[in-house]
Amino acid sequence: MTATNGAVLEIRGLGVTFGRRRVLDGIQLELPERGITAILGPSGSGKSTLLRALNRLLDLTPDARIEGSVRFRGVEVYSRETDPDRLRQRIGMVFQRPVVFPASIRANVLFGLKHMGLLQGRDSDAVVRDALTQAGLLAEVRDRLDEPAARLSVGQQQRLALARTLALEPELLLADEPTSALDPESAEAVEGTLRSIAETRSILLVTHSREQAGRLAARVLRLRDGRFEADGRARSTG
């Protein structure tokens, strides 16, 4: 079955159990082609688990059992034919605390492309500049691309992580509390980046901040104890 109404991601009846604990239940969600959808919830509500179930990162947790359907561009994510590594390339993810590899800024941006053999025949400088521009970081680092990425501030590292993901041209971005670990200025910069990314693709944003959800998202869903609360109405887009 192909996707209807241009939804890039369709989740139906998703449930996740860890051992005997039911972490997610009856999750139903459709993501549009563009824009930010926010999932709001307290810690322990299953927000991170939900994200990880979408790009099959949950496969790496040994005792997680997943049921239900997740269709990415009409194709079932959990089917046997799906290559999880390829899937994760097409669905980008940023985490709460940015992970920066012990290499230069340039090497970090190219990290995914390089180690998956996708750099052939491409102008790596152009790729780097383009990704950093999308991430809103180029201006700050353009003359020190070969310096160690570890020297960047946390906020810059988070944007670098975004650039690294964007370099792979994902069709969907999952963001797990991307600004929780950042100071207000960096958080603002990252929020700006997310807004501009959302102009061309969909972002599923997990956050515990109602204000942030209100600022960024066209649609807010509340997650509590593994279930969505009474369907989030579309808020006035900010």
Binding site: N55, L57, L60, D85, R86, L87, R88, Q89, R90, G92, M93, F95, R97, V99, F101, P102, F111, G112, H115, M116, A161, R164, T165, L168
Partner: peptide
């Protein structure tokens, strides 16, 4: 663990993650 997770999330397979992230670091 975050380092491994970040690499897998990019799309690197387990072997690539081990070689280019874990062993490297």
């Amino acid at each position: 663990a975050e380092a491994r997770e970040a690499a897998r999330a990019l799309g690197l397979n387990r072997g690539e993650t081990i070689l280019h992230v874990v062993v490297r670091q």
